[in-house]
Simulated scan of single mutants.
Amino acid sequence: MNTVHTTAPTPALDIQRLRITLPGTARPVLDGIDLHVDAGETVALVGESGSGKTLTSRSALKLLPPGADVQGAVLVGGQNVLTMNPDQLRALRTGQVAMIFQDPRAALNPLRRIGDFLTESVTLTRVMPTTRADATARAVELLQAVGLDSSALRKYPSQVSGGMLQRVMIAAALMGDPALLLADEPTTALDVTTQAEVIALLAELRERFGTGLLFVTHDLDLAAAISDRVYVMYAGRIAESGPAEALFAHPRHPYTAALLASTPRLEAPVGRLAAIDGQPPDLRQELHGCPFAARCPLATEICDRQAPEPVRAPDLPDHQAACHHTDRLEGSPVDV
């Protein structure tokens, strides 16, 4: 009898024990991050400002702060980005990975037409030569895919709305046929209607092109709407991760539960919105235990002296939480 061996497909992004320390800090900015995004999958990375979300996503392009001390591995298509030479990085950034930034107007030259922005990104930087005519045809195809027409090529950034510019940025990100798309809070500056359109567009393009999507956001409802899996970050560590539906229905970390409790709801009773007391830990202070201990309603002595390791849910191994008291959250909400 012949045995057939099957190998798991290579993830679009696989971050392994990533640890980044910056000069002048008492603790790592990122401390042992494990995260992966499969091809055609949307993964949300959520948390408060300063938790390390953006730095985690930028590590896939090796866009790191000066003086950063980096340990671990960041694999894109099985290749470690952190050990790439300049030529390999150039090929990665122009063909394999693309990023949509939060503010589209900051990414475009106001004195150049949108068509120049789209076509120059491939004619001047692609490893494989591309003619201007081919690049223009590709730009028109992608503009149509994001709901715009070829007239946008002749316009300047000041002549279109913020929502249209974000669509242009999405089209630009797809010009190189990336296997991985990084979206750093791309809907923050948009109105609710435009935000919904952009989210629907990203979901459609992910299915159409089979692109892995890492979506960085502080909006839990947005993460629930778009993602297959979610990672919750706090103070440079992964507090909880798992399938989106399970994580939001049954959070297993007090921080996730507190974030959900502080999210505005139309059906919520009248009164003051719940809030998380205190502030995230300062980078100038060393951490010995759980980083959320000072703000946690479940904290005990062990939380102050020992950092918790991720614990798997008994009925769902893909759902993990780094908490000493995760069993106290099962089946009942946390009063925060």
Rank of each mutant, 00 (worst) to 15 (best):
G50V: 12
S51W: 00
K53C: 03
K53H: 09
K53F: 11
L55H: 08
L55D: 02
T56F: 06
S57T: 11
S57D: 02
S57E: 00
S57F: 07
R58H: 13
S59H: 00
L63K: 07
L63V: 13
L63W: 03
L64T: 07
P66G: 03
G67F: 05
G67Q: 07
A68I: 08
A68T: 07
D69R: 15
V70K: 04
Q71P: 04
Q71S: 14
Q71I: 02
A73Q: 15
A73T: 14
A73H: 15
V74N: 09
V74S: 04
Q79S: 13
Q79F: 02
N80S: 12
N80K: 10
V81R: 10
V81A: 03
L82F: 01
L82Y: 03
N85M: 08
P86E: 13
D87A: 15
D87T: 11
Q88K: 12
L89E: 08
R90T: 02
A91P: 01
R93C: 00
T94C: 14
Q96S: 14
A98K: 03
F101I: 05
Q102V: 03
Q102G: 09
D103G: 05
P104S: 02
P104L: 03
A106E: 12
A107L: 01
P110Y: 00
P110Q: 06
P110K: 05
R112K: 13
G115K: 04
D116R: 14
L118H: 11
E120R: 11
T123V: 14
T125H: 15
T125G: 03
V127K: 15
T130W: 07
T130H: 09
T130P: 00
T131S: 15
R132K: 14
A133F: 04
A133N: 10
D134W: 06
D134L: 12
A135F: 10
T136G: 12
R138G: 07
R138P: 01
A139Y: 09
E141G: 04
E141S: 14
L142W: 06
L143S: 05
L143I: 03
Q144F: 08
Q144E: 15
A145W: 00
A145E: 09
V146D: 10
G147T: 06
L148P: 07
L148S: 09
S150Y: 06
S151G: 11
A152C: 12
K155M: 12
Y156V: 00
Y156L: 12
P157L: 04
S158Q: 13
Q159G: 08
Q159I: 02
V160P: 13
S161E: 07
G162S: 04
G162Q: 01
G163D: 06
M164W: 14
M164P: 14
L165C: 01
L165K: 10
Q166I: 04
Q166A: 04
Q166F: 13
Q166Y: 12
R167Y: 05
V168Q: 01
V168L: 00
M169S: 13
M169V: 06
I170R: 09
I170L: 09
I170E: 01
A171Y: 12
L174Y: 14
M175G: 08
M175W: 08
M175I: 03
D177A: 15
D177T: 15
P178A: 10
P178I: 06
L180R: 10
L180E: 09
L181Y: 04
L181V: 09
D184I: 00
T188N: 03
T188L: 02
L190Y: 06
V192E: 07
V192P: 03
T193S: 15
Q195I: 08
Q195C: 06
Q195S: 04
